[in-house]
């Protein structure tokens, strides 16, 4: 028996919108720790890892570990039927091949339940060890989204370089080149608007902008984004989900042949 009641149902709606273009089908894993997902895109160069901790739910019952295979497009269709202020409850019985999403309006005058078919998905879980990164950049998520969108109108790839001068996002295409430098900026009143650069070593990596733009669909989940870079590792783009967990995107860098 599984029953998860999320008062801020809009969080789940936003989570789905941020992953459904990257991954078609995924297993949602439910355990005492929380509600989680790890899935790779079809080409295996990008990965999304989601954790919504059990403490973030108003009610969290998960009698045994359960993995529920869902088509994310179908799940998104169902969650779009929930109002932004609705409380969402996810329910499933042991051994059932369906999951139920229950939507309650804040005033309790409307209650809806949507039952969705589950599917069997063969998924490969990757073990991702903790790593030391050469540079970690924290910046406003909207600023990062703007940069990725702007650069993708010029080129297909972005070079992200961190030096003591700041973080530079560069692209090149048929019509020309573009460079955007963001310097550390902690003097603003609002911490979520600051840009903080922790650099152990300078680092420069190249990524496909198509994926970066897809990751920025998570922008409504967090005011800040953290970009962790190391020369031998995939980049990690993390959006913290307030008091609940995180959504992290991993992307393999482009390397010389």
């Amino acid at each position: 028996m599984l029953e998860l009641r999320l008062v801020q149902g809009s969080l789940l709606k936003k989570v789905l919108e941020s992953v459904k273009d990257l991954v078609t089908d995924a297993n949602f894993d439910c355990s005492a720790t929380g509600f989680s997902l790890q899935a790779m895109d079809s080409s295996h160069v990008a990965l999304v890892a989601l954790l919504l901790r059990s403490e973030g739910f108003e009610h969290y019952r998960c009698d045994r570990n359960l993995s529920m295979g869902m088509n994310l497009n179908n799940m998104s269709k169902m969650l779009k039927c929930a109002g932004n202020d609705d409380i969402i409850t996810i329910k499933a019985d042991d051994g059932s091949d369906t999951v139920t999403f229950m939507f309650e309006s804040p005033t309790q005058d409307k209650i809806a339940d949507f039952e969705m078919k589950l599917m069997d998905i063969d998924s490969e879980h990757l073990g991702i060890p903790e790593a030391e990164y050469h540079a970690i950049v924290r910046m406003p998520s909207a600023e990062f989204a703007r940069i990725c969108k702007d650069l993708s109108s010029i080129g297909d790839t972005v070079v992200i370089s961190v030096t003591k001068e700041g973080v530079k996002f560069s692209t090149r295409g048929d019509i020309g080149t573009a460079n955007i430098v963001c310097r550390q900026n902690t003097s603003v009143d609002k911490p979520e608007e600051s840009t903080i650069i922790e650099m152990n070593e300078p680092v420069s990596l190249t990524f496909a902008l198509r994926y970066m733009n897809s990751f920025t669909k998570a922008t409504p989940l967090a005011n800040s984004v953290t970009i962790s870079l190391s020369s031998e590792l995939p980049v990690v783009v993390e959006y913290k989900i307030a008091e609940m967990g995180y959504i992290r995107f991993y992307l393999a860098p482009k390397i010389e042949d």
Partner: peptide, 14 residues
């Protein structure tokens, strides 16, 4: 340029 699969960076389990 080429991109290596994430499987070459991390290890599979489960």
């Amino acid at each position: 340029c080429k991109v290596q699969s994430l499987i070459s960076y991390y290890y599979k389990w489960g």
